[in-house]
Write a protein that binds this DNA or RNA. Structure first.
Length: 532
RNA sequence: GCGGGUGUAGCUCAAUGGUAGAGCGUCAGCCUUCCAAGCUGAAUGUUGACGGUUCGAGUCCGUUCACCCGCUCCA
């Protein structure tokens, strides 16, 4: 579908071109490239590292420090969020409680026809007793209906009425590839639609201790940052002065051993998440879900992902995750990447996780995770509420940082035949890795002597936000072209007029317009453009 | 995991089984007064990796790794 889309739609950008620019300009490299690379991992170069930091910082500032940029919650009060930085490796029981180990540690069998997935050790197979010729019929263990179905199909196949005790039964896991090829799956009509058993645990395993072994000292790299928040819920409630509703936020690496890493950094095995777990009273979860869904969408739009490339999509009931019960909301913020067009790829998911996670951890850890809310409950004689004890519900806006960076790169990539570079990166100034460049028009007549102090001034004032570039080499056009590909929004050029009236040229990346401003106003100009 | 395709300098690509090259970019110097100008010079490759055939392999064969496309997968 991608092929036809790029062939027929001129508006779809070329992913190959974007990847080439990322390499050429130092945004993203293949990990371990000089050793031939390693599937599913990527390194961020100088510009990419700063771009990624700027996006992470924007999220941290807007979400955590400013509490949704000061937008009031559905309760009419400021949104309360506290930060957290939990460990990548946790007690393995965390992942049992969360459901990451149990259901997904065992070899699984897929049916290509019915699209069902079974645990391999839960499937049994039957054939006519003493007759090992012909097709094998699979059914689900301890499922009479499934057994009867298989027996019926076997009878039809053998053109004989076969009794319940007239069959040999063996485990599916004992079958070889040749036998699987002649096996008919549960509820399947065709033969050979079952896959061989495959382990589907996507968690990275590691060993604790220098002399440890995998059996006794095995541990997992976290497959998501969320659980680190849930298991610290009690700590945060006990040691800080938060009260429900409030959120805990963290950014950090997570690891999933994806079967097929694909599409540049979109699906990689090591990735960084930006997650909020927002705890609220069960009665208010719907209002908070709506609040977060809409505000997160608006946030991405503010960073430059405007227009039709970004959509908000509510999940259908049949694609709800294991933790989201029916009826509770789940929505994706999706971006139309060149490799998904005309479809979309997930950037952030907003899910009503109900009290699933806290309940699981309360049970597995045998720790009380109830929250005592002294603003609720009926009034006591003294007029104060008696309080209410409950397990908070959780709204989870979970964003992929690497995917965000990729979306920003794709969105920024703008071919333009009318400029020497042929392309420029239209980053929002707040996100741009290089904030500004200072250029003496030529390397003489005292221009460098004026440009250098300006460079130092801007670097001191804005260096914490990103790179300030200074370059005296080669023609001015070449320097502008380089800044176009790096996505630097503003270039300040010192020329002969500067020597006379202390003004500099501001060169705007997007419009190629030039204007003159006083050299001592450059800092304020940049501050305003960067939103400070 | 399955099927198809591709790997030569930072990028785009050449090279009949016979000396690994060009353009662009990069770097240095000169020049240059607003959009990759010009001149001079320089650096850059175990031809993805390993093995085989051959007097001789970028080229042929095998294996492997990585990337791209389609399935599969994405809790």
């Amino acid at each position: 579908m991608t092929e036809t889309a790029s062939d027929n739609t001129t508006s779809v950008k070329s992913m190959d071109d974007i990847m080439a620019l990322c390499k050429r300009r130092g945004f993203i490299y293949q990990a371990s490239e000089i050793y031939g690379g390693v599937n599913g991992f990527w390194d961020y170069g100088p510009l990419g590292a700063q771009l990624k930091k700027n996006l992470r910082d924007a999220w941290w500032t807007d979400v955590v420090m400013k509490g949704c940029n000061g937008k009031l919650g559905p309760d009419g009060k400021p949104v309360s969020i506290v930060p957290l930085d939990s460990s990548i490796i946790q007690n393995p029981k965390v992942w049992e409680a969360s459901g990451h180990v149990g259901g997904f540690n065992d070899p699984m069998v897929d049916c290509r026809e019915t699209k069902s997935r079974y645990r391999a050790d839960h499937i049994l197979c039957m054939g006519v007793k003493g007759d090992d010729s012909g097709q094998i019929y699979a059914f689900i263990e301890n499922d009479d209906k499934s057994f009867d179905g298989a027996l019926k199909k076997l009878s039809k196949y053998k053109k004989a009425d076969i009794a319940k005790d007239g069959v040999d039964i063996c485990s599916f896991t004992d079958l070889g590839p040749d036998e699987i090829a002649i096996t008919v799956g549960p509820d399947a009509k065709e033969v050979g639609t079952l896959t061989e058993p495959r382990a589907f645990n996507l968690m990275f395993k590691t060993v604790l201790g220098a002399t440890g072994n995998a059996e006794d000292n095995g541990a997992y790299l976290r497959p998501e940052t969320a659980q680190g928040i849930f298991i610290n819920f009690k700590n945060v409630v006990d040691t800080t002065r938060v009260s429900v509703p409030f959120g805990i936020a963290q950014t950090g690496k997570a690891f999933r051993n994806e079967v097929t890493p694909r599409n540049f950094t979109f699906r990689s095995r090591e990735f960084e998440q930006m997650e909020i777990e927002f705890f609220c009273h069960p009665d208010e979860s719907k209002a908070w879900y709506t609040f977060w869904r809409d505000w997160r969408m608006a946030w991405w739009q503010e960073l430059g992902l405007e227009g039709e490339n970004l959509i908000l999509r509510e999940h259908d009931n049949d694609e709800l995750a294991h933790y989201a019960k029916e009826g509770a909301g789940t929505a994706d913020i999706e971006y139309m990447f060149p490799f998904t067009a005309p479809g979309y790829g997930e950037l952030e998911g907003i899910a009503d996780r109900t009290n699933f996670d806290l309940k699981q951890h309360a049970e597995h850890s045998k720790t009380k995770l109830d929250y005592f809310d002294n603003t609720r409950g009926e009034l006591a004689k003294n007029g104060q509420p008696k309080g209410e004890r409950y397990l908070p519900h959780v709204i989870e806006p979970s964003a992929g940082l690497d995917r965000g960076v990729l979306a920003l790169l794709c969105e920024a990539y703008t071919p333009d035949e009318n400029r020497p570079s042929g392309v420029f990166m239209k980053f929002h100034p707040r996100i741009a890795p290089i904030k500004a460049a200072v250029f003496p028009l030529v390397k003489k007549d005292g221009m460098p002597e004026i440009a250098e102090p300006l460079y130092n001034e801007l670097r001191n004032r804005f260096g914490h936000l990103g790179t300030i570039e200074y370059d005296v080499k080669q023609s001015i056009g070449k320097r502008y072209a380089r800044m176009d590909e790096a996505g630097c929004p503003f270039c300040f050029t010192i020329d002969s007029t500067t020597l006379e009236d202390q003004t500099v040229t501001v060169r705007h990346r997007d419009t190629l317009d030039q204007e003159r401003i006083a050299i001592d106003k450059v800092g304020d100009f940049l501050a305003e453009k960067l939103g400070f």
